[in-house]
Amino acid sequence: MTGDTSRRSAAAAALRRVWGLVYRHLALFRRSWPRLLELMYWPILQMVVWGFVTAYLAGVQNDTAGIAAGMLLGGVLLWEVTLRSQMGFSISFLEEIWSRNLGHVFVSPLRPRELVAGLMAMSVIRVLIGVSPAVLLAWLLYHFGLFSMGPVVVAFFAALLVMGWAVALGVTSLILRYGAGAEALAWSVLFGLTPFSAVFYPVSVLPAWLHPVAYSLPSAHVFEGMRAALLDGTIAWGHLGAAFALDAFWMVVMAGVFMRQFEDARVRGALLNIGE
């Protein structure tokens, strides 16, 4: 076998292993409609509540109605991308713990990087299932089209998706370190970043000493970019570039933390009883 053929064959085998993990979660969805419903429930609820807030503000300050609607609903929908991305990754990992299946997964030839790739793929699927109905309803109920910002919304979406993965890698590392007792973080950790992410207000609203904290998060740059797109119709390339650079930085840091915790769990024997 030539080197090229061997590499292609190894890549195909890696893809099949990743698909194996994704297939397991899709099979679970197929047999459990409440899981599907739960994915859509919260983003829709958030969108409806913020839609009414927007409608109320529109009644009070008629001239700013369109802008307020755009910024609030855009913020809600894009922030849901980050939340669902992080939860989609972390909860898919927790599903393996809850089903006490991790022992089988870790003694299979699935590499840790392939496990991460599978969880990322599940995260994308969960985001699309969870956020798409809310985006559609925002358009039907409030005439807010997320894509009215232009194609740049896809870049915003991608940057927030990657940020969700970085946070999820951190959460998964904590679960590897502290066991299933750390699972509450899978639902709560990203809410702690909301105030600094400038989802509904500009970073300038925050006290000056918090600006560096906000600007160390990809999300703050994305939402500054979103406001620029909605208010001025411009693409804030600086913010977009900073968001992706920070995504890359945090992914490298969190991947390092994850691999270190994974290897440490192999030393401590934590992979044997992580669900207990």
Binding site: R16, G20, Y23, R24, R31, S99, R100, H104
Partner: peptide, 19 residues
């Protein structure tokens, strides 16, 4: 060490066939 209980036997085996 259990196999995922909510998916079918065939689905379980297919998962591991892929892995």
């Amino acid at each position: 060490i259990a196999l995922p209980s909510r998916i079918s036997v065939a689905e379980n085996l297919r998962v591991y066939a892929h892995l």
